[in-house]
Design a protein around this nucleic acid. Structure first.
Lengths: 117, 117
DNA sequence: TAGAAATATGTACATATGTACATTTATTTA
DNA sequence: TAAATAAATGTACATATGTACATATTTCTA
């Protein structure tokens, strides 16, 4: 017996129309890269620390209790995706969040996680 | 010679204050999980497809050109993190985005990637 | 109640990834 | 200029992860 609420599978034309509305391969690739870059305890904490203010490498290593090379690798990953930027001050490398996009992501995720029961 | 703009490393007290402002371990863990769940071409495309409207498993498999088990595994991952939800309609499993948080994430990332040169 | 259709799960394997160690480079100061 | 401090890079390895294959489960229909 036919169920009136029965799901109707979309035809190929409808599906290909939906596919056209996806972000471009280039954009998808960048989004994936960003998600990957943020997807690490160390890097995520690094970003949230920088949300409070710029810090140099040694401070980050101290705060996160990881070795200097480890945090340096993390920072390179974040730098390559332009999530953080560096400013040289004497012999210190001072890191800070790249722009408000990044801050907004961080705030949003924090809010979402906070609301999640 | 002292450089007046020389960076001053924060003392332990300042750093521990910054650490207190981090999201809780629980929240960080959930954020990481979400980032990880979205960090896959198949799953990211799945989410963007569902942003256009709910779809059943077979449609998603067709659209993404992957096997049914593959998309099913992806959907389980997304389901477990409550990024998508299912509704049973007859013998079809109709998937849709869990809430506006997810839609907002997707729109934001798309916009960010679009603006990125 | 068979058989078919839709989906979910189990298992495995090749690849990707995070972090640690040692080392190098760059900058400062004594 | 030599020593010391700050940071970056090279390399390696153990672990995590995505996807494919086969199979099980559920639901509908003939």
């Amino acid at each position: 017996m036919k169920n009136p609420t029965e799901h109707l599978c979309a035809d190929e034309r409808t599906i290909s129309k939906m596919l056209n509305n996806l972000p471009s391969e280039k954009d998808l690739s960048r989004i994936c890269d960003i998600l990957g870059a943020m997807n690490s305890g160390t890097r995520l904490k690094t970003l949230y620390l920088l949300l409070e203010g710029e810090m140099c490498v040694r401070e980050l290593a101290m705060a996160l209790q990881v070795s200097q090379p480890t945090i340096s690798h993390s920072l390179r990953t974040l730098r390559q995706l332009d999530l953080v930027r560096v400013r040289k001050e004497g012999r210190f490398a001072v890191y800070y969040l790249a722009d408000e996009h990044v801050s907004t992501f961080l705030e949003m995720f924090r809010q979402h996680a906070g609301e999640y029961k």
